[in-house]
Amino acid sequence: MTDRRRINGPPGETIPPFFDDADRAPETAKGRFRPSNAIRKMFLKTGVTPSASGSAYLEISTSAKPGASGLKLSCSVHGPRSLPRSAPFSPHLVLTTHVKYAPFATRQRRGYLRDSSERDLSVHLETALRGAIIADRWPKSGVDIIVSILEGDQERETSRSQGDEVWEMMNALSGCITVAAAALADAGIDCVDTVAGGVAALVQDTDGDESQPSIVLDPVPSEHAKILAACCVAYLPTRDEVTNLWFRGDVPASDMELYNSLVEKGIQASRNANRVLVGCLTESVGEGDTS
């Protein structure tokens, strides 16, 4: 489907190139600054969009210096509202998820219409949230969850190595799940638990086959030489349930243990994210007390 309503730039445009300066020491692969079992720091805040029923903003910064690129997500929840007359009867809450990269969110500029990868993310997000929402409490109603990815967790410096964007998409999905759970809670839509997303990856820190691959939480592609496999998990901590699992990579099928440990690490990352989520919600409840 082509976008006829807006004036689109030429296809395939990118941000301005980042030239290697002779004076500046080329920023080599920076390596991971945090422990392998720690996720990046995140900032989560609910109630950022006044017009929405519920909303949340999530920010994950990659490096210590503020303002550097990271993941910035804004989620708004509209509803529960009655379904349009044309819609068929539904005894459950009809969940609609939209994940959209802002045109400027990634190195490769995005269009205004959702492309297939964004639709894919939407489907993943919907699956993740569907397991958490108590949908039969809202018959004949619909909820729209709209996640805007304002910054897509792509390092500007690494523009020369146009890597596989799937790894960044996994990080984005885990963020989407967490921020959508916060926005759902902000909207007061009943859930069995707060669902949070977590990513674990099997990475190789130095090039070459001799180094031992290791599993890290919350991988940032620019921090590692190579990502062999990754797994994004949406996890309900209280019920000990995984609502969505996305596994990707080149892992020998025989090594079942590796699969297990990747999923476990993903759950661990999700638990860590969930703590931030619960803390944020507690804080917003506390705010409700004072105001």
């Binding site: 720690a38 995140m42 900032f43 910035k72 860590n272 931030v276």
Partner: peptide
């Protein structure tokens, strides 16, 4: 380890 201040 997990929470941070927001960016500007």
């Amino acid at each position: 380890a997990t929470t941070t201040a927001p960016s500007s």
